[in-house]
Simulated assay, not measured.
Amino acid sequence: MFEPMKTAAGKPMKKMPAPAATGRTNDPDGLRQRLLDTAFEAFTTRGYASTSMQDLRELSGATGGALAHHFATKKALGLAVVHERVAAAIEESWIAPLRAAPDASRGVQQVFSGIIAGLEDQGRVNGCPLNNLAVELSGEEEFRVPMAALFDAWRQAIAGKIRDDRKAGRGGTASPQALATLVVATYSGAMAMARAAQSAQPLRVCAQQLKQVMAA
């Protein structure tokens, strides 16, 4: 059994509607969204290679014909998951909260705190969806390019917030781009460690270290 869908922060996303018993639907777009939800959950927790199209049909309740109508191949479905679900998870978990924060340092701390609370509420660490897929699929050019673009957008959002702080007379002298790369890399590594240990402790340690670095 898969757990509820998670954002990049490991928080549950909105629960998808229960599939129809026969997989038939008069709502083609709704079925497509359900297939994406199911694939996102499976690919980022079980793994892309370990999930078959038959698995996805059974998990979504869709017929083989319906699945083929929306996604002719597993790769097409995987790319749609990256573009439409993983990108949205990064936006929801990191980029939007950071932009709304009073400054970059507090924004990063608020994101980490929210992630840690979410992981403790659910009692399980599945890791960062983007990082999970990047580790598995970066050897394939079609996946590597859009995933690299998502990492870049993530870094640019953090770097932009740091530049805004500098313009307002806040922050230190470190390169905004380098500091943003450090934040993303630290978070990604901490989530991998947290998943292996099934504990949010690596995130707590890294959040505290980033707080000191960003205040220096």
Results as ranks from 00 to 15, higher is better:
119 L>E: 09
119 L>Y: 13
120 E>F: 12
120 E>M: 07
120 E>N: 08
121 D>R: 15
122 Q>C: 11
122 Q>Y: 06
122 Q>H: 11
123 G>H: 04
123 G>E: 04
123 G>A: 03
124 R>I: 04
124 R>P: 07
124 R>L: 11
125 V>R: 05
125 V>Q: 08
125 V>D: 08
125 V>N: 09
125 V>C: 11
126 N>L: 08
127 G>D: 06
128 C>V: 04
128 C>L: 02
128 C>S: 06
128 C>N: 12
129 P>W: 03
129 P>N: 02
129 P>G: 00
129 P>F: 05
130 L>T: 12
130 L>A: 06
130 L>I: 08
130 L>W: 08
130 L>S: 11
130 L>P: 01
130 L>C: 11
130 L>K: 12
131 N>M: 01
132 N>V: 05
132 N>Y: 00
132 N>S: 05
132 N>R: 02
132 N>W: 00
133 L>G: 10
133 L>A: 06
133 L>D: 06
134 A>H: 11
135 V>F: 00
136 E>H: 11
136 E>G: 05
136 E>C: 05
136 E>W: 08
137 L>T: 10
137 L>W: 10
137 L>G: 10
138 S>V: 03
140 E>L: 10
140 E>F: 14
141 E>Q: 13
142 E>I: 13
143 F>W: 07
144 R>Y: 06
144 R>H: 08
145 V>M: 14
146 P>E: 09
146 P>C: 00
147 M>C: 02
147 M>H: 04
148 A>E: 14
148 A>Y: 00
148 A>R: 13
148 A>D: 15
149 A>Q: 13
150 L>Y: 04
151 F>K: 15
151 F>D: 14
151 F>S: 14
153 A>G: 10
153 A>K: 15
153 A>Q: 15
153 A>L: 13
153 A>Y: 00
154 W>T: 09
154 W>Q: 15
155 R>T: 05
155 R>Y: 03
156 Q>F: 00
156 Q>I: 06
156 Q>H: 08
156 Q>A: 12
156 Q>L: 14
157 A>I: 02
158 I>N: 07
158 I>D: 07
159 A>S: 07
159 A>V: 01
159 A>F: 04
160 G>C: 05
160 G>W: 02
160 G>Q: 03
160 G>L: 00
161 K>L: 07
161 K>Q: 11
161 K>A: 14
161 K>C: 06
161 K>E: 04
162 I>A: 03
162 I>G: 06
162 I>V: 03
162 I>H: 03
164 D>L: 14
164 D>A: 15
164 D>H: 14
164 D>I: 11
164 D>P: 08
165 D>Y: 02
165 D>P: 02
165 D>I: 03
166 R>L: 09
167 K>V: 15
168 A>N: 09
168 A>K: 12
169 G>S: 09
170 R>K: 15
170 R>Y: 13
171 G>A: 01
171 G>V: 01
171 G>D: 01
171 G>P: 02
171 G>C: 02
171 G>K: 02
172 G>L: 01
173 T>L: 10
173 T>S: 13
173 T>K: 12
174 A>Y: 11
174 A>P: 03
174 A>R: 11
174 A>F: 12
175 S>I: 06
175 S>H: 12
175 S>K: 11
175 S>M: 04
176 P>R: 00
177 Q>M: 10
177 Q>G: 08
